[in-house]
Amino acid sequence: MASKKIPITRISKFFSSEDFQLEQNVGMEWLHGDMHFTLVLFRVDGKLSDVDDVYGESGPEEIRYKSPVEFNAYVKIEQPKLDSYAGGLVKDLEPGNMTLGVYIKHLNELDIDVNYGDYIGYAETEDKMRYYVVTNDGRVTSDNQHTIGGYKAFYRTIICSYVSPNEFKGV
């Protein structure tokens, strides 16, 4: 049974569903056509993965992924973080968090969803791919910033943190 739909009529004096579609399409054309930041989404298949029955964990060879999907998003990567293990004795320099702005319509067209814990690959150079894990899937888009004039949300902000090759290095 289809879920009940509620018509959105706010700011209807100045803005309509057609305007929303137009704004969204213009934005997508700019982001996907001009900017063209491309990323690869590796979605963990929780059903097929071989998980530990106490911790729910899997080793690198035990995790199963759905087919990787390329998608476009606006990418912002923070400065690298210099940290250390063992109280400053073992240096660790790694990329900062990656924040993605992705159109909800784009995800729907690709028929994918980005979930907490999924992995995302981003090609920094021709021969270097960095991998990140989703730490905030941005599923909640209730704030004004994610809407066009308060009409309806049109994008999600996804925050990812760097993962070491020990945890994930592509499939």
Partner: peptide, 23 residues
């Protein structure tokens, strides 16, 4: 019914049975 660990996706896979639409 699991000891939750650092693996993020495992948290979701253990709680989807009683999670909301926002997961």
């Amino acid at each position: 019914d699991r000891i939750l660990t650092l693996q993020r996706w495992a948290e979701l896979s253990q709680t989807w049975k009683f999670s909301t639409s926002d997961k």
